[in-house]
Design a protein around this nucleic acid. Sequence first.
DNA 1: CGGTTTCTTGATTGGGATCAATAGGAGTGG
DNA 2: CCACTCCTATTGATCCCAATCAAGAAACCG
Lengths: 209, 209
Amino acid sequence: MPSRLESLAQGRRRLRGGEALFSCGDPLCSLYSVCGGSFKTNTVDGEGRAQVTGFFMAGDLLGLDGIGSGSYSVTAMALEESLVCVTPYALVERLAREMPEVQRELQAALSGEIVREHAMMLLLGSMRAEQRLAAFLLNLSSRFARRGYSPSDFYLRMTREDIGSYLGLALETVSRLFSRLQVQGIVEIRQRHVRLLDVARLHALGRTG
Amino acid sequence: MPSRLESLAQGRRRLRGGEALFSCGDPLCSLYSVCGGSFKTNTVDGEGRAQVTGFFMAGDLLGLDGIGSGSYSVTAMALEESLVCVTPYALVERLAREMPEVQRELQAALSGEIVREHAMMLLLGSMRAEQRLAAFLLNLSSRFARRGYSPSDFYLRMTREDIGSYLGLALETVSRLFSRLQVQGIVEIRQRHVRLLDVARLHALGRTG
DNA sequence: CGGTTTCTTGATTGGGATCAATAGGAGTGG
DNA sequence: CCACTCCTATTGATCCCAATCAAGAAACCG
């Protein structure tokens, strides 16, 4: 948890749902720490292919991907009314030099992002649809838990389409799988309200493959 | 290109093909810069699912993923007789503090890895098999070019299975697609020797879809 | 050489995409 | 309040791409 980084914040910014925090290609000027609400990030390639690359909630850091090239490589969009802490990157850079702790935290955040994406590559490259969705729900669950919310009763902030894009599935497939998990008594889903009824079986789905 | 980082190397290590440079879970002790030869990296998850997450050649940095947790999150294996420069991580950390340039380079390398993986997620999540393979060949091509080798005539150092794992495809699919590209006159492939005959059409494959 | 790994090619299957139609909310304005 | 629209979600029917199973062929290697 980047506690030290967060305390460097020079300001805050409030966004409404659907509003972009920064866009792919914008010059890197700040790093952002999510204070409240949630975000998704999107990449687009030369041919117009788009993909959701991540979902972010309170405490997560946004903008790290821009450090290498000096401009953001994704677009970050608020999924609901949200609040971020803004830290000018110039300040981060300077303080990282002066405070080893900040430097280490920044590197850890960057490296952690790499590890997270390795896991995502594994998911996209070698799991079946049902396993992907199970992994997604369990991941959300543990992130809510770490923030003190219920790990088994939460609201999805993103659409089926967002989830599908993130998991490399069609939105219809996501919807179908939710229905199936519900029939099997593993989860209960009404719209975006999710209740995990049998976490053990949800885990077990990952092993069937 | 991490020229500054490379110059910090405290030693070298030679590996034969199939030998592991470090393994997933090993404590992070050094960063490695490939001097010659090539490597692949592998992740494994709890259920034994494995996936190739990257291929590395001269000038590429290995071990960055370990910075966050203090231990490597992938296994790096030489694909052939290879040589790496070894830089103890403790040294990197200290020098990064003293030399802003080193700090910036390290952060740029980390961030660049994130961007590279975003592209990989896009590939795995939203491209068809043929497009994936085309993108793979073009990526290799440009990396060879940047190193002064021919961008249109090179040897693959990895097996069809490695390629398939990396691209989220079965090895048979990789083989079939190579054959098809050859029939279409886009590439010429004899075993691992690849010649790109029509780069424009190879690019065009990416746009079809 | 014989054994092993790697690669190719064929036949079949199946998982998930796609197309299509309907239904459910949420927000707006009458 | 209802009627209207827009967006999101569900469900069904069909199709196709790539996985899987299977059998050889080719290259590599002790």
